[in-house]
Amino acid sequence: MLFSGTIFYVKQEGLTVIESLYFCVVTLSTVGHPSFEPQTTLGKVFTMIYIVGGTGLFMGLIGYLAYAIIKKPENASMSPLKASRDFSMFRSKNRCRVSTLFFVLIIKNKKDPL
Results as ranks from 00 to 15, higher is better:
Ser99Pro: 02
Tyr9Met: 04
Phe46Gly: 00
Tyr9His: 09
Gly5Trp: 00
Ile107Arg: 04
Leu101Phe: 05
Tyr64Pro: 00
Phe103Met: 05
Ile7Phe: 14
Val26Thr: 11
Thr41Gly: 14
Gly53Leu: 08
Leu15His: 13
Val52Asn: 02
Ser88Thr: 05
Gln39Leu: 13
Met1Ile: 06
Arg91Phe: 10
Ile70Gly: 05
Ile18Phe: 14
Cys24Pro: 01
Phe87Lys: 01
Val45Asp: 15
Leu42Glu: 15
Gly43Pro: 06
Pro113Lys: 04
Ala76Asn: 07
Tyr64His: 06
Leu105Pro: 02
Thr6Cys: 14
Thr47Pro: 01
Asp112Trp: 08
Leu28Gln: 04
Ala76Pro: 00
Val26Ile: 08
Ile62Val: 12
Leu61Pro: 03
Phe36Ile: 06
Val25Thr: 14
Thr30Ala: 06
Ser20Glu: 12
Lys110Asp: 07
Thr30Asn: 05
Ala66Leu: 10
Leu2His: 11
Ser99Thr: 04
Phe87Gln: 02
Gly60Lys: 01
Gly60Thr: 05
Val17Cys: 13
Phe90Arg: 02
Asp112Ile: 04
Arg97Leu: 07
Glu13Thr: 08
Val17Leu: 12
Ala83Glu: 05
Asp86Asn: 14
Phe46Arg: 01
Ile49Asp: 09
Lys108Val: 14
Lys108Gly: 13
Ile70Cys: 09
Lys82Ala: 14
Gly5Phe: 00
Ser79Leu: 07
Thr47Ser: 10
Lys82Ser: 12
Tyr64Gln: 04
Phe8Asp: 03
Phe102Asp: 00
Thr40Glu: 11
Gly63Asn: 07
Met48Lys: 13
Lys108Leu: 15
Asn75Tyr: 11
Tyr64Arg: 01
Leu2Val: 08
Lys111Ala: 08
Gly32Met: 01
Thr41Ser: 14
Ile62Asp: 06
Gly5Thr: 00
Thr16Val: 10
Phe90Asp: 01
Phe3Lys: 06
Tyr9Val: 02
Leu57Phe: 11
Phe103Gly: 00
Pro113Asn: 05
Lys111His: 00
Met48Gln: 10
